[in-house]
Structure formats: C-alpha cells, structure tokens
C-alpha cells in the first residue's frame, strides 16, 4: 500500500442496520473484511493485511463518497441512490433492506389523485418526486422538502400527498393515510466508482461475483 492508500479497497457502508446485514452477506460470500458491528464509535475500520477499509457513513452520504472516489464502492438503498442523482456504476442488487417508494395520502384520494390540479407533494426525496412526475406523468408539481415525519404534511394540509418509503405501512395506517401508488420497489444496491472499476478491476469483480452468488 502506498501513502494515498492506493493498495486499499475502500467500501462505504451506511451506518446502522444496513451495514450489519451487508456484513452478513460479506461473511456468507466469504469476503474477509473488518466487522462493522464491533466498530463502536469508530468511523473507519482498516485491515491492512487484507488491504480493505470500511467507512461507516450516513446513508445519504454514501453516493457522495463513491462518486468523488474517496470510496471505491459502497452499499446504498435505491431510494437514496435515486435521489442523489450521482454518476455511479450500480452493479448489484443486494436484495436486502427491501421496501418501496410510494405516493401516499388520504384514502379519499385513492382514485382521484391523478386529476388533482396544482399538486403539492411533501417529501424527503424532492428531486426523485419532481423527476417521477415529469417523466411518468408529464406534469410539474410543487414539491416541499421535509426532513422527516413526512406524514404530518397531508394531515396539516401543508401538501396534498407525500412521497416516502413504506416498509410495513404501520406509520401510514396509524395516521390515517394509504398508499396511492407504489412508485418503485427499493432494495440495497452495490455501487462502484467509475474510475475504480477500471483501475481496480480484478479485486472489485471478485467481490461482485462472490456477492452475486449469495444474494437472493
């Protein structure tokens, strides 16, 4: 390894549950790497002998680290990836962290929402929402960016509808909202930097094929 860590393969993982289940996949695929479940508060785990380094990042930052090349590859939910609009190679669906990006709102809107004029939509995914409506509905909508508890927006009449990830639908139900349309299924993806893919081809391809053998 040289001073810039050129011999190292750097992988960015989203902190939390997804990092743990990714590690599970790595173990199953017999890819040796440091164990993120034992990281404590450390953000970088390096194993010099294996030549591998894990970065534990905020999930929405993973595409940034990989696009800018400070991480060669990373694991990120498709929802985050669609919102980030970054130039990455999306090489593998890891099949974990499954959920869906959905348009949700009051049950009264179930059949009539497409004809609502001047739609206002609250979301943590403003760019994806705007793009979806432009590309799939040929319609510009007003998107209001919210950081969390997006369900509040239609309840308080801030917006007509929301676009958010739905796992069990529990939060929606408890707040009297329903899924109006599933926009896309979501799962964790393995992404690779375009330059790393060519420069560290053999190592990266080794990891991809080991992982693709164990994903469901």
């Amino acid at each position: 390894m040289d001073k810039n860590g050129n011999g190292l393969l750097t992988i960015a993982l989203p902190k939390g549950r997804l990092a743990d289940s990714t590690y599970g996949l790595f173990v199953e695929a017999q890819i040796q790497c440091p164990d993120p479940t034992e990281a404590g508060r450390k953000l970088i785990l390096t194993d010099e002998e294996l030549g591998i380094r894990l970065i534990l990042a905020k999930p929405t930052d993973v595409p940034t680290y990989v696009e800018y090349g400070v991480a060669d590859m990373g694991v990120v939910g498709l929802d985050t990836l669609l919102e980030a609009e970054r130039n990455l190679l999306e090489v593998l669906d890891l099949g974990i962290g499954r959920c869906a990006l959905c348009l949700c709102g009051d049950p009264k809107l179930l059949d009539v929402w497409p004809s609502l004029p001047h739609k206002r939509i609250g979301s943590k995914y403003p760019r994806y929402t705007e793009r979806y409506f432009i590309e799939q509905m040929r319609e510009s909508v007003e998107v209001i960016y919210l950081n969390g508890s997006v369900e509040l927006a239609p309840l308080l009449n801030l917006t007509d509808m929301i676009v958010d990830i739905v796992e069990s639908g529990q939060t929606l139900r408890e707040n009297g909202l329903v899924v109006l349309r599933e926009l896309t299924p979501v799962s964790a993806r393995l992404v690779v930097n375009q330059a790393s893919m060519r420069i560290k081809q053999e190592r990266i391809n080794g990891i991809i094929s080991a992982l693709s053998a164990v994903v469901k």
Partner: peptide, 11 residues
C-alpha cells in the same frame, strides 16, 4: 449496460 448492472438482468 452503462452502469454494468448485471444483477438487474433478471428484472
């Protein structure tokens, strides 16, 4: 193809 998403092939 551009993003070399072999895993997307089945879908």
């Amino acid at each position: 193809v551009q993003s070399q998403a072999v895993a997307a092939l089945p879908t």
